[in-house]
């Protein structure tokens, strides 16, 4: 316990990085998810195909492989393009950027499915009722589709977020000084790896438990007026 207190700043810094990374990638993945759902539901064949390929690749390749590809390979690619075109000099992609970008894109695929399912879950009749009331497209989206979509998407959203939060731990493998990395470093230098990894374990558990409770409260709020199954 004393050891943990001694290293509390390092752990705290790691925790902050972890949360920042998770939130940054969440913003990206929700954006990607909305775009993906729109593409999957659109009438355009090309958009369907692109969105389909996107979710298939993400499902087919493990997160860490993609993170490493973006971090190591992306770096080289960006600099080769820079050298070839002369548009920019040597650029370094940070671990944080690589991690946020990759995890954001990966979970964008999961959010795509969540949002697509949520939109499909809205009873057609309600949309038709909106149209027949004379609502315009944007008004229909804002007043009828969006509020209901939020409700149907919440369980999937919560699930994705919890997984996403845990997935950020993988970015420590490419050297981002997040919670896992800092705990591991402290553990290694003090010879108390169990103590520090256990601390990381408990902190992650606290993060997911708090998220879980928050999400449940949100779900209760948004499921008003809906019969419980």
């Amino acid at each position: 316990m004393d050891l943990l207190l001694e290293y509390r700043e390092q752990l705290l810094a790691g925790l902050v990085t972890t949360v920042q990374l998770a939130l940054a990638s969440l913003v990206l993945s929700v954006t990607m998810g909305l775009l993906g759902a729109w593409a999957k539901l659109s009438a355009s064949r090309a958009a369907n195909a692109v969105a389909g390929a996107y979710t298939t690749v993400v499902r087919g390749v493990p997160d860490l492989v993609l993170i490493m590809l973006v971090f190591f390979g992306g770096q080289v690619t960006v600099n080769r393009i820079g050298a070839a075109t002369g548009l920019w000099n040597y650029v370094e992609i940070s671990q944080f950027a690589a991690g946020a970008l990759t995890i954001g894109i990966i979970f964008g695929a999961y959010f795509t499915e969540t949002f697509r399912g949520a939109i499909l879950a809205i009873p057609r009749g309600q949309i038709e009722a909106g149209i027949s009331t004379g609502m315009s497209g944007p008004l229909l989206f804002r007043r009828i589709i969006w509020p209901q979509m939020v409700r149907y998407a919440l369980p999937g959203f919560g699930n994705n977020w919890l997984v996403q939060l845990k997935t950020t731990a993988l970015v420590s493998v490419i050297g981002l000084q997040d919670l896992v990395y800092n705990a591991f470093a402290a553990g290694r230098s003090t010879g108390a790896l169990f103590t520090f990894m256990a601390a990381a374990f408990v902190i992650y558990l606290a993060l997911t438990a708090v998220s879980d409770l928050g999400l449940r409260a949100l779900e209760r709020r948004y499921s008003r007026g809906v019969a419980r199954a």
């Binding site: 919890l162 896992v180 790896l193 990894m197 374990f201 992650y204 558990l205």
Partner: peptide, 20 residues
């Protein structure tokens, strides 16, 4: 507990932690 924590941390805890 096992669904609330990353697999990476679980594995580290066992592999690196047990030897403490």
């Amino acid at each position: 507990v096992f669904r609330g924590t990353p697999l990476l941390v679980q594995t580290y805890l066992l592999y690196y932690g047990a030897g403490q």
